[in-house]
Design a protein around this nucleic acid. Sequence first.
DNA 1: TTAAAGCCTGGAGTCTACTCCAGGGTCAAT
DNA 2: ATTGACCCTGGAGTAGACTCCAGGCTTTAA
Lengths: 139, 139
Amino acid sequence: MSDHPAQFTIGRLAKAADVNIDTVRFYERQGLLQPAPRTAGGYRLYGTADAQRLQFIRRAKTLGFSLEDIAELLRLTEDGHDRGKIKAIAQKRVADLESRIRELEKMRSVLAHHAGHCSGHGEVSGCPIIQALLDEPAA
Amino acid sequence: MSDHPAQFTIGRLAKAADVNIDTVRFYERQGLLQPAPRTAGGYRLYGTADAQRLQFIRRAKTLGFSLEDIAELLRLTEDGHDRGKIKAIAQKRVADLESRIRELEKMRSVLAHHAGHCSGHGEVSGCPIIQALLDEPAA
DNA sequence: TTAAAGCCTGGAGTCTACTCCAGGGTCAAT
DNA sequence: ATTGACCCTGGAGTAGACTCCAGGCTTTAA
């Protein structure tokens, strides 16, 4: 039986998840992690479930969820909720991502178009990029 | 000859450009707008060139430029610079947009994949979205 | 003349997600 | 017992781009 510690302090937890130690305390204050039990001296003690929860948070963040979204996901995983809400949150996030992507693509194409018409030398006045910013109707 | 006012106060300028009046003052503090001349009583006075400059800022923002970028673009349009730097800034911005778009698309595809495997009903435990967040290797 | 609308300043507050700090206790090893 | 690594708290600071406020002038129109 491997005998890795069932309990560890905040520093180890932070290191294992590769987050700043202050971030762990911050997540606790934000309600993303439960308040940990303490040693007699006041040190927080964590277990493997906490490490898993912290990984959950990290992964959700890489998918672009805000901490508020993540807090809701975590809440939904606890009580006896069903998958409907989870799926709804995920789909809303997908939709948000798609609309943001469309926005950025529009910016990109407009700007690339202007840049493509700029020779890159000569005086500024008349530069197509600047002209576009001066003259085009406001978006 | 149309006789629209050559000079106007901050409120009119803000309204014309559809920005908050405090935003105009903020841009002045940030150096994006020149300090306006004042009336005897201390009111800022603006002309059409200022309105154009404010539009420039708004349009650049819709293309995703930061205020810092915009400040630089404005500086470059003033002195006798050439188009090289302008084009370089625009191209860097295009590259930034592209990398951001790729990031978001990756998030979108991963999340859409998980959501596509979630039935949307039944208990949370076993939901593919949650499972993915719990089990997948950290990104 | 007087009231309303508009403007002034300096500074604080908002949002997100941390990150850092000082001053001081705790824990493990020597 | 002492050292050094580790942890505690409360609070402040960061970035970006505003936005709002109080208290108090100025301008304009009736």
